[in-house]
Computed example of a mutant assay.
Amino acid sequence: MAITFKGNPVTILGNQVNVGDKAPDFTVLANDLSEVTLADSKGKVRIISVVPSVDTGVCDEQTRRFNEEASKLDGVEILTISVDLPFAQKRWCAAAGVDKVSVLSDHRDLSFGKNYGIAIEELRLLARGVFVVDSSDTVTYVEYVPEVTNHPNYEAALEAAKAAK
């Protein structure tokens, strides 16, 4: 799949994940620098919202939108992953009032980005996307947003999460 950033093609590291795949594991960092893996939310439906940086407009809106939706989704855990430093994520979450989603950092080694085929080589950022993983760790929804500066399909991701329960 071709992904662009501001209209320019970028190189994506890793292999694309598809519906029906077993969700690849990953290790990212929480705001307190503790490690978080896929197994930490085992048995739950997860929406994994991927953004380049919470400090940009579309990423800010995407993270706030999923934070708002979180209270309407019983039994669904929402993870937002970017390569922002955990300290910056913590500061942003406090300023934005984001407290219902887990905002996690893939800065250390791009574990998530490479395992889900969404790391941009040229920029060392993650491309934009959304994944839904069911309680048995099967990927049930995948969206790699073709132009990184565009919004994902929020409604489709939310419906997929509801259907995965």
Rank of each mutant, 00 (worst) to 15 (best):
V54S: 08
V54L: 15
E77Q: 12
A30K: 14
N31T: 15
A39G: 10
F66W: 14
D74P: 00
C59Y: 02
V28C: 08
I47G: 00
S49F: 04
D55M: 13
V45P: 03
E69Y: 07
D74G: 10
S49Q: 04
F66M: 10
K44P: 00
V45Y: 10
A30P: 01
E61S: 06
I48W: 10
K42A: 15
T37E: 13
L73T: 04
G57S: 15
V58E: 05
V58W: 08
R46Y: 09
V51R: 03
K72D: 15
T56R: 01
I47H: 04
G57Y: 10
G43R: 09
L29W: 07
S53P: 00
S34K: 15
E61V: 13
I78Y: 06
K44F: 11
N31Y: 01
I78Q: 05
I48F: 11
D74S: 12
A39M: 08
L79S: 01
I47F: 07
A30Q: 11
I78S: 06
I78P: 00
I48E: 05
V58C: 01
L73Q: 09
T80L: 03
V36L: 12
I78D: 08
V36S: 06
D55H: 08
T37W: 06
E61C: 02
R46Q: 14
E68T: 09
V54E: 12
E35S: 13
F66S: 02
L33H: 10
S53N: 03
V83I: 13
L29P: 03
A39S: 13
Q62Y: 11
D74V: 03
L33K: 09
I48T: 06
A30D: 15
T63F: 10
V76I: 12
L73D: 11
A30N: 14
D74E: 15
V83A: 09
V51T: 13
